[in-house]
Structure formats: C-alpha cells, structure tokens
Nucleic acid binder design. Structure first.
Lengths: 118, 118
DNA sequence: CTCTATGCAAAAACTTTGCAGGGAT
DNA sequence: ATCCCTGCAAAGTTTTTGCATAGAG
C-alpha cells in the first residue's frame, strides 16, 4: 500500500495498516492505542498522510471520535448506533443518487438490535 | 414546544428555539453564537436538555462540530460536504430497511456541486 | 547525506462541569 | 420557598503543532 506513494515505510505505519487490515469495522485511536507502540502524534500524523493518499477513509461517530478504515475495502454504508456508539459496516447495496452530488459514503444512524433489547 | 416538558420557559431557551425554527439547515454553536445572548455553557446545557426531551436532533459534521435542528421537522436525510463541511437537508424520500435496526437518520457524505466545480 | 518521520510536551478546538448567585412557579 | 437555570472560569476530550532528534532511502 505504501509503495505506491511517496510515503516511507516505517514500523509505525506498518503497525497501523496491519491493525486496520485485521479490523472488521472502523476503529478509532482509543480502540487500538494499546496495540500499537507509538506516540499519538505519530498515529494522527500518519492517519492524515494515509487519508491524503487515499489509503484510508475516516468517519466520525457521535462520541466525538474519528474512526478509520482502509479504503481498499469496497465502498459500503455504515451503521452507527447512537446508544453504544459502535460502527458497523453494511454490505447491503444501497443505491442513492443525488443529481450533481458526488456520494462517497452513506451513514445510517439509529439503534442497533442489541441496544434495542436493553 | 417547552410547555409539553418539565423544562421552564426562559429567555435563553426561547432564543435558541427561535433560531432553530428559522434555520433552513442544521446549525452549530459557532453559527449562532453572535445571534444569541447567553454563555456557551447555557447554550450547551440547554441543547442537552432539548435532546433529552426530543425537541431537537443533533448530528456531527466532519469538522468536529455538532449541529442541531428541531426534531419537529419531518424526518429527512442529510448531505454533508466533506470539502466545505456544510450540511444540507435532503427531502427526497430514501427508504432504507435494515432488519432489527431502528433507523433515525441517514447521512450522505460526499462533495456538493459547488465544491466539485472548484 | 538528505529529507521525512518520530517522540515529547504544549496548544488548539469544541464541549462539559463546579460553584455561587438569580429567577420561575 | 424551592428548585431549576444562568454566568463565569476552569477542566475535560480528542486531535494538532513545534521542536529537536532519529531513521529511511
């Protein structure tokens, strides 16, 4: 992934990308900070670089945090539970067209089945 | 709006609700701070109360800010431009069903026509 | 060897909280 | 008279920046 960009390959970058690769849903810094060995400044600086080069996409939950995923994954919608703040990927094909608008992501907000039971 | 709740009617609350009523799209604190005469703590505390009582809904743009609108308005989708961070209301009827999920809002992210030209 | 990347600490941006005083019912 | 509401200042949370050093190509 890095080879196609001017970004140098470093242990920090490999760690971040490996974790994103293994993740089944978008993750935020807090989710992975114990699994990586680098300063938060390094993490965020690399995240910015990755976004600039289209390696990852980001979205924000309603808990103030920003979540990241590899953009290599096929474009898909996301469901954010406003109770537990988890983000799930929706693989159902949702076609939405808005004349003149470029659509990059669809975020559905609501309450997930688990939180509805509680 | 306030009469149906245990919340007392105060000048601060009336100002906030009036501004939300006049707004054509969701607004954040910064958008209206010059148009209201109250401390930001009062603003945010009232926002929280309004949400608790279902008077308003909120959503976050990708600029860290939270945006608010009256929930009295018919439910509708929102388009967030990731370039200029504006939020527009989409009145087109988008029906999305996800078994077991309660859907409260649909947020479409992308690039608006104006930013595409630039 | 050069320029990019990193760590640490401090700052920034937005929102929340503590506390004492004021106001609605 | 009782609680709810408000302003001010300070703290909290997540992300960003400055600066000196380390490391990749």
């Amino acid at each position: 992934m890095l080879k196609r960009t001017p970004l140098k390959t470093t242990p920090a970058r490999e760690q971040i990308l490996k974790l994103l690769q293994d993740a089944t849903c978008p993750v935020c810094y807090e989710d992975i900070k114990d699994k990586i060995s680098m300063d938060k400044a390094t993490f965020y600086r690399n995240i910015i670089k990755f976004e600039e080069h289209g390696i990852i996409r980001s979205l924000e939950s309603n808990n103030k945090k920003r979540y990241y995923e590899l953009s290599r994954q096929k474009a898909h919608a996301h469901f954010i539970c406003t109770k537990c703040n988890t983000i799930q990927c929706i693989n159902k094909n949702l076609q939405i067209h808005l004349k003149g608008y470029e659509i990059d992501d669809i975020v559905i907000k609501g309450v997930c089945p688990i939180c509805q039971d509680a």
